[in-house]
Design a protein around this nucleic acid. Structure first.
Lengths: 331, 331
DNA sequence: ACTGTTATTGCAACCGATCTCAGCAACCGA
DNA sequence: TCGGTTGCTGAGATCGGTTGCAATAACAGT
């Protein structure tokens, strides 16, 4: 491939390189006849513009960083999946940035994205700290966050209604006849995690039953500890709400090791709606978040903000997904 | 940030921009005194070089595409995780490319990576077709493949010894007293998937027991179908080897729905060693692949090839990871 | 003191586009 | 017929670095 640059196309088409440039990026500025000729020639040569050169000159690239704490967590993986798709459709390339929950890394990625002329970035924060960091960077480069951001309306966000989700879970369990419902907190120190917990506390108080927080930790082992706690109780709840599917998996797994069966002995409901849940043992009843929508919406929000400066906060509706990990309480 | 370019640093340090450039990228070519001064000034200004500009001029970037069929599959997610880490350490940025098993997309990414001046790419193919595509592109840009490549020694690969893995699984099961061991095939139409299956066929024949392939499909539902098949047999095997952990999950889940318990009624062993397996119900016994190593090695191989043109084929050793999904056969 | 390295640094072209400005032809109304 | 638009294309500077080459300084050797 003899280095296909805009100049060789220009020569081949018998026009100046600026005309070729226009033929691609501002078609209406070129006589249609000329344009088609150029495009045809380019096509024939198999020419595509260099995104690098474009980015350098235009000071805006097509690289969009997706900053997640852990791609190994299926929630973020599913997010990444829909995101790549949405990105592809619009000609962006996703840069995968994994922070491992280290705020320093997050900041590192922020500065990198500036250097990269990223038009915007998507952040799925692992802790509130990440969102704090946002403020320190007076973004010329915009960011949209998959979480709530504390008292900051300057950054677009997309989330699902945590309260509503917990309500759906509680209603489902109540309908099955459960009255004593425990809770195991989530993996993350995000606002979302906190919101779910708060909702649980409030809503169960409202319904008259005493909340039973089995574990309020924020690490991967919350599920395991929650299960241990459960096993130690003399009068354990008959159902458990897990702050997210991963935790639910851990709870069920740990319970299983001690011979406690789900849903026969205790019902467990998750929160996320991971595809994986369908293949769990037993298939997990859960509150589904519209993850696929979140990816698309996040990118739309970012683009919108880039254009008209609007900052939206989208709150999506979760829905109950009944599979097999919940049933009526043991008599 | 008043657009920090190399020229402003040069001015601030009182030298020419080429000297600044050298101070960063070829330190030995600058008097140490000068260099340190420049670096200090740059530091003070918070200057970093533009990867875009560098890439454009040098015709080699730090973007390295990671091409996977499905990031939602935890195996690829874990791969991506170690990969980002390895990439970060060496100053690369990972471009996440998800093909969904569509060879056309794979090709698209190949051409994109040329345009991006990617120094190399990592491909975890979903089908043999992907590796075929490799050949059509007479790579100036190198690729390393996480799979075997049919009769082509021109591309570096890293894999784990499938045969050895299956052998470990078989031995484990035999040691527990199983004599009738079924097999459910994997997700992918890769060489790896095929190798595992072939190994199973050969090795069980050698050990004198008739192979029982419960399902040889290559899609996500292989596990479910395998389980169905199992349930229909009048004399089903007492243990099942799944070609990978995801399939094992599906098998156990499907079996569970029909009241078949693991490992009480049947033992199941996976292949991958996903972290997720530890939180499955029951925790999954499996053949562990050193995924973390694979990521690092892949990148090392690529760099090595770039430098001295060497093409290596690394084969890693799998190991048995006993958790709780296997036990002695039911009497 | 004179010439031949060697170590440093400056110069300027170049990577592959974009974009402002200027030039030119066709077109319009008066 | 002439100034004024309008439409389209070419020139050339520019984005932020890199690099071969030339220039200068410093240092040896004789």
């Amino acid at each position: 491939m003899p280095d296909l640059s805009i100049d060789v196309v220009a020569k081949a088409a018998g026009v100046h390189r600026s005309t070729v440039s226009r033929a691609f990026s501002r078609p209406e500025a070129v006589k249609s006849e000329t344009r088609e000729h150029i495009l045809r020639v380019a096509e024939g040569l198999g020419y595509t513009m260099s995104p690098l050169a474009q980015a350098l000159r235009k000071k805006t690239s097509t690289f969009i960083p997706l900053i997640v704490p852990d791609i190994t967590n299926p929630f973020f993986a599913e997010l990444a999946k829909t995101m790549t798709q949405a990105a592809d459709e619009r000609g962006y390339q996703l840069l995968l940035c994994v922070t491992n929950g280290d705020p320093a890394k997050t900041e590192g990625y922020f500065i990198a994205m500036q250097a990269m002329y990223a038009p915007f970035g998507i952040v799925a924060p692992s802790t509130k700290v990440d969102t704090e960091a946002l403020k320190r960077f007076d973004f010329g480069h915009k960011v949209v966050v998959i979480d709530r951001v504390e008292g900051d309306d300057a950054v677009p966000t997309v989330t699902v209604d945590s309260r509503r989700g917990i309500m759906l879970a509680l209603d489902h369990l109540h309908a099955l006849g459960h009255t004593s419902i425990g809770y195991v907190s989530g993996i993350a120190g995000t606002h979302t995690a906190q919101d779910r917990m708060d909702a649980y506390l409030e809503l169960s108080a409202e319904s008259g039953s005493a909340p039973v927080v089995l574990d309020s930790g924020s690490d991967l082992d919350a599920g395991t500890r929650g299960a241990e706690h459960f096993l130690e109780m003399e009068k354990p709840p008959t159902a458990i709400i897990a702050a997210n599917d991963m935790v639910a998996f851990a709870v069920i797994s740990a319970l299983g090791k001690s011979g406690v069966r789900v849903p026969e002995d205790v019902s467990v409901i998750g929160f996320d709606g991971l595809a994986l849940g369908a293949r769990f043992n037993p298939p997990l009843t859960t509150i589904r978040q519209p993850i696929a929508d979140m990816g698309h919406i996040a990118i739309e929000l970012a683009e919108k903000q880039n254009i008209d400066g609007s900052v939206d906060h989208i709150v999506l509706e979760p829905e109950l997904l009944v599979r097999a990990s919940t049933s009526g309480p043991r008599k």
